[in-house]
């Protein structure tokens, strides 16, 4: 039994049902990546796992307890979340933003401590934003800003960390930088990571466990080498392709099929 799992989930926004009878398990210590076409319910699943969305039916179990009945602070000390939409308040510095990750460890009587200070410094060092500590977050580049948000999630010191499309809006160099950072956190600090990613090749390269979704259902899950086949990509995305070995890592590399000429052009 893994620490985080969902069984028989019906996920809906108001009356719009996104998924029914959905069950997933996040292997402990894995870097799990969820892939799937737009609107397949992958972000919705992540929201349900992180108790942002209450399932209409079914339960999300965290350490054996229903995530919606556990005290919210207890959940926040076990499961961290980096959502897609986040706003840096006006005038906040990098160190101040990262320090907010300590919120679930504080209380009415227990305020800022040496330990908090140390964790914030370590989190900034781990994400390479230590030098930016006193800068305003609004002055940073997109890649730097995303690393600051990840640092905030790290400062929360949760064994599980959920990331919703952490590479969106970043250029390719910054995407790789953020994913390398995630892989490092996974390997060095032994955290369980769950991320929603759009790029299949990134997913294949960084994930230890892949969940492919389509129409609110898990089409297949397992190690990327087994899951990511040409047949699956065709089935899930409707995209004809070839899957070859990534020359850098040996992981699957999806190469979409070349555009077929239209019949009119072919006749000419």
């Amino acid at each position: 039994m893994s620490r985080l799992s969902g069984t028989g989930l019906t996920l809906a926004y108001d009356k719009r049902v996104i998924a029914e009878q959905l069950s997933v398990e996040i292997p402990d210590g894995s870097f799990t990546v969820i892939i799937g076409p737009n609107a397949c319910g992958k972000s919705t699943l992540l929201r349900a796992l992180s108790r942002l969305l209450k399932p209409a039916a079914g339960t999300v179990l965290l350490d054996g307890g229903d995530v919606h009945s556990l005290p919210t602070r207890t959940v926040a000390r076990t499961l961290g979340l980096l959502p897609q939409s986040s706003t840096a308040p006006d005038g906040i510095t990098v160190a101040e933003l990262v320090a907010r990750g300590r919120y679930p460890h504080q209380g009415l009587l227990r305020r800022w401590s040496e330990r908090d200070e140390q964790v914030v410094t370590e989190s900034m060092a781990a994400t390479g934003v230590g030098d930016l500590a006193d800068r305003n977050v609004d002055e940073l580049s997109g890649g730097q800003r995303q690393r600051v948000w990840i640092a905030m999630a790290l400062a929360q010191q949760t064994p599980l960390l959920l990331l919703d499309e952490p590479t969106t809006y970043l250029d390719i160099a910054h995407q790789i930088e953020v994913l390398d950072l995630c892989a490092e956190l996974h390997e060095r600090q032994g955290r369980t990571l769950v991320a929603v990613l759009h790029d299949l090749n990134h997913a294949a390269r960084y994930a230890t466990h892949l969940i492919a979704m389509r129409d609110g259902k898990v089409a297949r899950s397992g190690p990327p080498g087994e899951v990511l086949t040409a047949a699956l990509v065709e089935e899930v995305f409707g995209l004809p392709c070839r899957v070859i070995d990534d020359p850098e890592t040996g992981t699957p590399l999806v190469v979409p099929a070349a555009r077929r000429k239209t019949s009119v052009q072919a006749e000419v």
Binding site: P83, S85, P89, A153
Partner: peptide
């Protein structure tokens, strides 16, 4: 203060 970063971030932090 946590809410200023968005509802999702705040909820993730246990607010």
């Amino acid at each position: 203060r946590m809410l200023e970063m968005g509802d999702d971030v705040a909820a993730g932090l246990g607010v």
